[in-house]
């Protein structure tokens, strides 16, 4: 634990003058509450701003915002709304963007099926979850039937 923290400080300080120089430039964790359809646009704006803050190129920006749009729409349609949390993780000095979307809906009974293209129980093409997974580097679905769904998706800035 301490070891890890030291390592990341070392590599960061090698590039910038102060060990916490660029961490300060990053905004803290952002939360967007998703209750109405208009909030889908708020989600897009917030995620777009976050991708710019992390320093993604235009194609990665588009990937992450599109994935966020898919996930937010899923939460809105199937979960009756939810909360999006935007975080700025760091791994071995590499910056990233993590989206966590949590809803209190009925949950997904068959996650594997939901990740297959064409699977849909509502509006859309059924590309929602599977498509969003392809646009992100890491993707995790936690769901309890009757207990809501949480999707955690991360993309790292290419070195």
């Amino acid at each position: 634990m301490t070891q890890l923290a030291n390592t990341s400080t070392t590599s960061r300080a090698a590039r910038t003058d102060t060990p916490d120089g660029d961490a300060a430039a990053e905004p803290g964790t952002t939360r967007v509450v998703l209750t109405t359809e208009e909030d889908l646009l708020t989600v897009r704006h917030a995620v777009r701003a976050a991708t710019l803050a992390v320093g993604f190129g235009i194609v990665d920006q588009t990937r992450v915002v599109t994935a966020a749009s898919e996930l937010a729409r899923n939460a809105y349609i199937h979960g009756g709304g939810g909360v999006l949390t935007i975080e700025y993780p760091r791994r071995h000095g590499v910056r990233g963007l993590r989206l966590t979307i949590r809803d209190e809906g009925p949950g997904i009974t068959d996650v594997d099926a939901a990740l297959v293209d064409g699977f849909t129980t509502g509006a859309g093409l059924g590309h929602g979850l599977g498509g969003a997974r392809r646009l992100m580097d890491e993707f995790e679905v936690r769901t309890v039937p009757g207990g809501g769904t949480t999707v955690v998706a991360t993309r790292w800035v290419p070195r």
Binding site: V59, T62, R63, E70, D117, G130, G131, R134
Partner: peptide, 13 residues
């Protein structure tokens, strides 16, 4: 736009 086209094919659409 190019980034939109790339993202769409990666989405599988």
């Amino acid at each position: 736009r190019p980034p939109v086209a790339i993202t769409l094919v990666e989405l599988g659409i």
